[in-house]
Simulated assay, not measured.
Amino acid sequence: MSLDSALTALRKADKSNAHNALSKAKVALLQSNALVPSSAVSPQTLATARSVLEAGALLSIRLQDADSFVRYYSQLQPFYDYPALQKSQSREKSQITGLYLLLQLSQGDYAGFHTLLEGLIVAESEEGRSVEDDPYIRYPIELERCLMEGSYDQVWRRTTGKEVPGEEFALFSGILINTIRREIASCATRSYTSLPIPSAKNLLFLDSEGAVTEFAQEQGWSLRDGWVYFPAQDPKKGEEADLEGEREMMSNVVGYARELESIV
């Protein structure tokens, strides 16, 4: 199979034939000696190989295979940096980079997120541009700001609203919301002794009170008479300031949960 045929197959693939298309694409890359860029291969062939890898990365996202996406992202970096390909910049580069930033947020890899972002800021400033001019890059940047501020309601709105820049980005919503849910749960147990189940449902962005029961059991919380009871905490000395900040954040989130209750 030629690289052009492999690219066409990847772009047309669905879940039923995705793995077969990905396997054939890898063989095509090997046969074309285009797994990594080199002067022995024409720039045109390398540009097609880059597109094949990008299509593989996006297909991996649609399959919700984060490990495969990371492998494709790593394979693409030499192509993005290869001098002979600089005149034919990829249309998919910023989308894939934005998806990688979003994956890092979803996995709680804030150090990796900031390391990559700092490199992007330098590269864009050298060209007289800002990273936030690109909607694919701006989206994870805004989400990270909301996460750092503890504005989880804003994260929820951005991951479920019109601000999501593409289908592949929407697929990360579940992963990111699960990360947020665990963080809220951790803060809630240190800030409150109990909450009504309806408030807990909205607070944790869960779909039903039954989901609250299931989540509470996973966390080792007690449920009684329509309330969720958190285990008693014994904060260590010196944590009072942190707890005060958590309580303020939780107050904002609980306020949002009550707004949702009134709407429902």
Rank of each mutant, 00 (worst) to 15 (best):
L203P: 06
T8E: 14
P140V: 05
G255P: 09
V52N: 02
Y100Q: 08
E127R: 15
R145H: 06
V264G: 15
I177N: 01
Q31I: 08
P43H: 00
R71V: 04
A185H: 03
E142G: 04
S5Q: 14
R181L: 07
L204S: 05
V155L: 12
T179N: 14
G108N: 11
G255R: 14
S32R: 08
R145N: 13
K162V: 02
V122L: 13
Q77I: 08
D109R: 03
E124T: 13
E261W: 02
G112N: 13
M249Y: 00
T160N: 09
E132V: 03
E149H: 06
S5W: 11
K24G: 11
D14Y: 05
S151H: 05
G98R: 00
A257T: 04
D234V: 07
C146W: 04
W221L: 08
R224F: 11
A57I: 10
D153R: 01
E244W: 04
A18G: 03
Q44H: 09
K162L: 09
S94K: 04
L29A: 06
E248H: 11
T189E: 15
T179Y: 06
P165N: 04
T189A: 15
N33D: 10
D4Q: 15
Q44G: 03
P140H: 04
S106K: 01
A123P: 04
K236A: 14
A25V: 02
L147D: 11
E248Q: 13
E168S: 02
L46Q: 06
D4E: 15
V131K: 00
K15T: 15
F230D: 05
S38P: 07
Y73E: 07
E167S: 14
Q154L: 12
D67R: 10
G255W: 09
E163W: 01
S39D: 15
A232D: 12
D133F: 13
W227V: 01
F215P: 03
E127T: 13
P231L: 14
L147I: 12
E54C: 10
Q31F: 13
A84W: 01
N202Y: 07
E239W: 07
M1V: 07
A200M: 08
T48Q: 11
R62M: 00
L171M: 00
D4T: 12
A123R: 09
L58P: 04
S74N: 03
E118P: 02
G119H: 13
A9C: 08
S38H: 12
F230V: 08
K87R: 14
S262L: 08
A47Q: 06
A13Y: 00
W221S: 03
E183S: 10
L22P: 01
L204N: 05
L176S: 02
K15P: 05
T48K: 11
E183D: 14
Y256Q: 09
V212E: 04
E244T: 06
P196A: 15
K24M: 11
N252T: 06
K236W: 06
